[in-house]
């Protein structure tokens, strides 16, 4: 991309320039307002009301927010995704980084094959992936059952209430390693090779190059991937929602905050309260993601 120097100003009439710019951005602004701002505004509006089977709709102010702050089901779900975030995201990004570094090292035989193979799970729709893993986890007819039969052992049931979160973590890791790998790998590819040569001349080994050149160079990509993962964790919905019909006793209707809002709105007819929970979750996600971004960028500077 070339950046031309601003030409000498011909000083057009200010108002005409303003209108012209607005004309160009209007289509975008209209769509942005309709599909982005309006739903948010509408959700906030909804969250100030309460609709009851007996008594109809009433304005309740911030009562829904008070209720959500004191709602154990909401906090349980939030605690669950926070645990998920703390464990699954480092594991997934760590593996993705290792794979990216291995591919980038140039010492891997069949690099293109591995790159496409690792990326392939991301191309599988989450619904299909979850169903597939759901079958594999089965202790009666699935892979776990086959392993039990073949080796005469009794593996712990991956779909039992205390293991289901780890099992979901495994599915998500499988799905998203390839995606994150690609982010890291493309960031690694743009590092100038002269840096490696300079490091080699200075006597640095491969590990030293990784630690001193490659990792600092892709910090931005790592921060971005982490922010995506934070948001993804807080919005965890697909996997538990698809596993729920298989194991309704392990995955409750309020298993994650997003699943909770879904249940509230669609089986409980409590759209107002669902909107409240969604807004609180959105704000919390923004705070955590922004805090991480500030921290990541400060170190970079």
């Amino acid at each position: 991309m070339t950046v031309a120097d601003p030409p000498a100003r011909s000083r057009p009439r200010r108002s005409a320039r303003g209108w012209a710019g607005f004309g160009f951005t209007a289509p975008f602004l209209a769509v942005f307002a309709l599909v982005f701002l309006a739903p948010i505004a509408y959700s906030i509006y909804l969250s100030l009301f309460q609709d009851r089977l007996i008594g109809g709709t009433t304005f309740v102010g911030i009562a829904n927010y008070r209720q959500a702050i004191a709602d154990p089901q909401f906090w349980d779900g939030l605690g669950r995704v926070a645990l998920f975030l703390a464990v699954q995201v480092p594991v997934m990004l760590g593996i993705a980084l290792l794979v990216a570094l291995a591919l980038d090292s140039g010492r891997l035989y069949g690099r293109d094959f591995f790159r496409i193979t690792v990326f392939l799970p991301y191309a599988v729709p989450a619904v299909v992936a979850t169903l597939m893993w759901g079958f594999m986890y089965g202790t009666r007819f699935g892979l776990v059952a086959d392993l039990n039969h073949a080796f005469g052992v009794t593996l712990p049931d991956p779909l039992s209430p205390h293991l289901i979160l780890a099992s979901i973590g495994n599915i998500v890791t499988w799905e998203f390693i390839g995606y994150n790998m690609l982010i890291f790998y493309s960031a690694l590819r743009v590092i100038p090779h002269s840096l490696y040569e300079a490091a080699a001349i200075d006597g640095a080994g491969q590990w030293r190059i990784v630690a001193a050149v490659k990792l600092p160079a892709i910090r931005g990509a790592v921060v971005i991937a982490t922010i995506f993962s934070i948001i993804g964790s807080f919005q965890l919905f697909n996997e538990p929602s698809i596993l729920r019909p298989l194991v309704p006793d392990s995955v409750t209707t309020s298993y994650t905050p997003n699943l909770y809002t879904y249940s509230l709105a669609f089986s409980g007819q409590q759209e107002d309260y669902a909107a409240t929970v969604a807004i609180i979750m959105g704000v919390l996600t923004m705070i955590v993601a922004y805090a991480f971004q500030l921290r990541g960028m400060r170190k970079e500077a």
């Binding site: 739903p39 509408y42 509006y45 609709d51 709709t57 007819q269």
Partner: peptide, 18 residues
């Protein structure tokens, strides 16, 4: 039963302007 306009798109929240 009085149904306020805002419930028209309950559960969807997308077409609120309309």
């Amino acid at each position: 039963m009085h149904v306020p306009a805002r419930r028209v798109v309950r559960g969807l929240g997308l077409l609120c302007a309309a």
